[in-house]
Design a protein around this nucleic acid. Structure first.
Lengths: 201, 201
DNA sequence: TTCCGAAAAGCTAACCGGTAGTGTTACGGT
DNA sequence: ACCGTAACACTACCGGTTAGCTTTTCGGAA
């Protein structure tokens, strides 16, 4: 059990990948709601229980590969250049994340997601969970208790920015406007001191 | 079909009320997850299909009576005293709504809700839908197109304020802080002109 | 008053996402 | 060579939700 580096892990990863790929293909072909779990399992040639051993829910088949989001946001806080102000760093990362969705070959997937209320709700709930991590990261970065109101608030606002920009007709402009608002909100929220510049370039 | 004013309507309302009351009682007695739809239907002496004719989902049995929320927020915008600035009006209403949850005899219900991830997720999704109505009301009040970014953004922020304050240890203080942030955000967001004062008393 | 149409409520039977319980296989480490 | 365990499979089941169809109940026109 010390270093399980071998065929077993590869097989497991392969099964997981096959399930995810099959699911996404079927969902795109026939629509998310029109495809049942049993369809996916059969097409991927695994048992239903196996599918649920890899993914906790049907929705996770779509969003499962997306642990990045949370990590990238928290890293945007923790790994930013020393002395760089917080909000612009987040702004840059959110811009990248939004661009990653709206552009590229991801369009059909997002069209599918936008067509399913179930998936949209799941995504929003997920993002709210991400907001809690982000709030914790921000609080830690400032040496504050993790449930500080200002940090939790600004984290929510940042998640809102992502969500709203993704829906906007012109994501870039929307993002600019929303982050101007967040910047102002953060400026008056700062609990104590001014450790890292309030103004944006 | 011209003026259906009679016993039929009363009976329907009574059935709905009986279902809601029964459901809430059972949920409080045994816990939300521990009570099945079939239990509620049997105890209310109606068929399962009848139950679903009145409520679109199990969660709606808990939140169904809560159309107020949306209405009160939008009315806080539309019915405010002429010349009264927007944000303080919303602040007052949100404060009242939060107080309505944290205080009063509503405590057991909210303890039940907080104990169920399903209900919490449902509530958040519902609030996000409310944010859209609020955004529309704000935009209309300012004579702007309903999908204006600034309006949608501030509406989200207001919903966040409600949500965060409800979770906070000290809701009053949290609300003060969050609304200071919203006030600042709104001040820099205003698209064109200044039809109704930026500053709060 | 009587009868008709429609709304409300009911019953049956299922669908679908998800889980429990119980093996069975195949791999990794000893 | 062998044992422990992780991955997978199979069956049966649960709980929320819906479809299809019948029965009851009321409102209003004839």
């Amino acid at each position: 059990m010390t270093a399980p580096t071998g065929r077993r892990e590869r097989k497991k990863a392969a099964t997981r990948q096959k399930i995810a790929d099959t699911a996404l293909r079927l969902f795109l072909e026939r629509g998310y709601e029109a495809v049942g779990i049993r369809d996916v399992a059969a097409e991927a040639d695994v048992a239903v229980t196996t599918l649920f051993a890899h993914f906790p829910s049907k929705e996770a088949l779509v969003f499962g590969q997306d642990q990045d989001f949370e990590r990238r946001l928290t890293q945007a806080v923790t790994d930013r250049a020393p002395g760089e102000p917080l909000i612009p760093a987040l702004r840059r990362e959110v811009r990248a994340l939004v661009g990653h969705c709206t552009g590229e070959g991801a369009a059909p997937v997002w069209r599918m997601i936008d067509a399913s209320q179930t998936l949209l709700d799941y995504e929003k709930a997920m993002r709210l969970r991400h907001a809690e991590s982000l709030a914790a990261a921000i609080a830690a970065d400032l040496g504050l208790p993790p449930d500080t109101t200002a940090c939790r608030t600004v984290a929510r606002f940042v998640i809102d920015a992502y969500s709203l920009a993704r829906e906007a007709a012109d994501p870039e402009t929307a993002l600019d406007e929303i982050f101007r608002m967040i910047e102002a909100a953060w400026a008056v929220a700062r609990p104590s001191g001014d450790p890292a510049g309030t103004t944006a370039p």
